[in-house]
Structure formats: C-alpha cells, structure tokens
C-alpha cells in the first residue's frame, strides 16, 4: 500500500521535498513509515527523538497502524506564536 508523507520546516529542508509517496507493507505503523524515510534520507535520523507525527490530520503515536492512501506528517519541534 502507498501513503503520502508530508514534511515540514527543517525536515523538509533535509529531505529536499515537502511531500513524497511511500510504499509500505500491510500492517505497517507510522514508525515503519519513518524508518523507510530515514533509509532514503539518512540525515533525518537524528530527529527521531524530537519528532511529532500526524495521521490524516490527527496527532498520532508512532505505534499507530497506517492504511492505504493515508497522509502521514512528520514534524520537528514547533515554534509558532
């Protein structure tokens, strides 16, 4: 199955793109999506400890399962206001 990955701020800069498609195995979690992303962009690895994720516009844990056509976002620490 295939999900859309959204990246923001520094993560977007590192990956060089704000959006990409990722193929994942059935039963995959957000953590698996992240692992696949790091495999393509190893420079993202240090961010794992300070990351938030969202699935279909809801903040989500990394252990959450993903489904085909999901939008999965990875976000560095926020600085709005």
């Amino acid at each position: 199955m295939r999900v859309t990955v959204r990246l923001f701020a520094r993560l977007r800069d590192i990956a060089g793109t704000s959006e990409l498609a990722a193929d994942v195995a059935p039963g995959a979690t957000i953590a698996d999506v992240w692992a696949g992303l790091v495999a393509r962009h190893p420079d993202l690895a240090p961010y794992e400890r300070s990351l938030s994720a969202a699935r279909n516009l809801e903040y989500s844990r990394f252990s959450a399962a993903v489904a085909d056509a999901d939008e999965i976002a990875f976000m560095p620490p926020v600085s709005g206001g």
Partner: peptide, 10 residues
Amino acid sequence: VKQIAPIWKR
C-alpha cells in the same frame, strides 16, 4: 499555541 500548533518560524 506555542506547545502544540504545527507552525514553524525561520
């Protein structure tokens, strides 16, 4: 907002 809004400043 500063804690949870997905917004970033450069």
